[in-house]
């Protein structure tokens, strides 16, 4: 009787964390978001161009001119796919920054006037709560002839392998201790 109560108790304890029914998920306490600072390092090489950062969701990812120091800032809706475009100052139409007609804005950035120089910019990154990283700085060296590839979404931290190597070494030591004890 006692044994069956104990077994039921253990099973209940094991499944308890998975019981959530319709309760909204609380924020995940094991991860945190850190900001990504994007920076164009060679903007001075293109004095005749205006650089515009733009997403692809109307009203939420409106175009913005990039500061002269090259820092790409702004707050965008999380599902926006953010790209940076270079537009010749002579071709630049500032009304595009406030234009609410999505199709016109999209058409403008798809035209030959705008050259996409960076694509898939991220402005935040989710890391483990145990991570010591507090921000990421991405520096881009752009060219008008080639698109800067997107930053890899996952930057491997090779320290993670220590999480696996240490337990394996410890298990081996335990095995050695136990086998010596048997002899």
């Amino acid at each position: 009787m006692r044994k069956s109560i104990l077994i039921i108790g253990i099973i209940l304890l094991a499944i308890l964390p998975f019981v959530s029914a319709d309760i909204p998920s609380p924020p995940n306490p094991t991860v945190k978001d850190i900001p990504i600072e994007n920076h164009i390092s060679n903007m001075d090489d293109f004095p005749e161009y205006v650089f515009v950062v733009y997403g692809d969701i109307p009203g939420m990812c409106s175009p913005k001119i990039i500061d002269e120091d090259g820092s790409v800032s702004g707050s965008f809706y999380k599902f926006c796919v953010i790209s940076v475009y270079a537009v010749k100052k002579s071709d630049f139409d500032s009304s595009i920054l406030t234009n609410n007609d999505y199709s016109q804005v999209q058409e403008y950035f798809n035209s030959s006037k705008a050259v996409k120089v960076i694509e898939n910019l991220d402005f935040s990154k989710t890391v483990s709560i145990t991570s010591t990283e507090d921000k990421v700085v991405n520096s881009y060296n752009i060219s008008l002839n080639s698109l800067v590839p997107p930053e890899p979404k996952i930057k491997r931290d090779y320290k993670i392998y220590l999480y696996l190597i240490i337990p394996i070494v410890a298990i081996l030591i335990v095995v050695v201790i136990l086998s010596k004890r048997r002899k």
Binding site: F18, P29, Y163, P167, V169, A170, V174, I177
Partner: peptide, 22 residues
Amino acid sequence: LINSITNPLLNFLLLFGINMIT
């Protein structure tokens, strides 16, 4: 020895968002 097995593995599995109580 015991904590060198369980503690790094716990932190490794935490990275995958597994519930702390589990």
